[in-house]
């Protein structure tokens, strides 16, 4: 419409959010927070997709976003279920305590 707000702005915001999420995944030790950061990354991609779709006038990107939201919800559900089950046995949700494998 007015054209002042370009796609670049959206993409910059999306990529910064993606990187924030990635940093969180790499740095945090709490599995709950890692899962949240993964969600952040997926959301960043969603923003980029919608922006691309809007600026090229193509619907497919938005539909892909729709599926991405579905997938993210499913992943979170499974992740939390595993986390709870693991917590019952190991009493910890920190990565440094989850080290049974590879010893």
């Amino acid at each position: 419409m007015d054209g002042v707000l370009g796609i670049e702005e959206y993409l910059v915001v999306a990529s910064i959010l993606f990187c924030i999420g990635l940093l969180g995944v790499i740095l945090r030790r709490n599995v709950l927070l890692i899962l949240m950061c993964l969600e952040l990354m997926l959301n960043a991609v969603n923003l980029a997709l919608v922006a691309f779709a809007r600026y090229s006038g193509n619907m497919d990107g938005v539909i892909l976003t729709f599926f991405a939201i579905t997938v993210a919800a499913a992943e979170v559900a499974i992740g939390l279920a595993i986390l709870v089950a693991l917590y019952r046995r190991r009493k910890s949700i920190f990565l440094q305590d989850l080290n049974l494998l590879g010893r």
């Binding site: 796609i7 993606f18 999420g21 995944v25 599995v31 890692i34 899962l35 993964l38 990354m41 997926l42 960043a44 991609v45 980029a48 997709l49 922006a51 691309f52 779709a53 600026y55 090229s56 193509n58 497919d60 990107g61 892909l64 991405a68 997938v71 992943e75 499974i78 992740g79 595993i82």
Partner: peptide, 24 residues
């Protein structure tokens, strides 16, 4: 799960970039 979710976020980002450049 953590590795898988991370990789699927990256995969989706790649798809988004290809999609965006192709669409425009």
């Amino acid at each position: 799960l953590v590795f898988g979710a991370l990789s699927s976020a990256i995969l989706l980002f790649g798809i988004a970039l290809l999609y965006g450049t192709a669409a425009s």
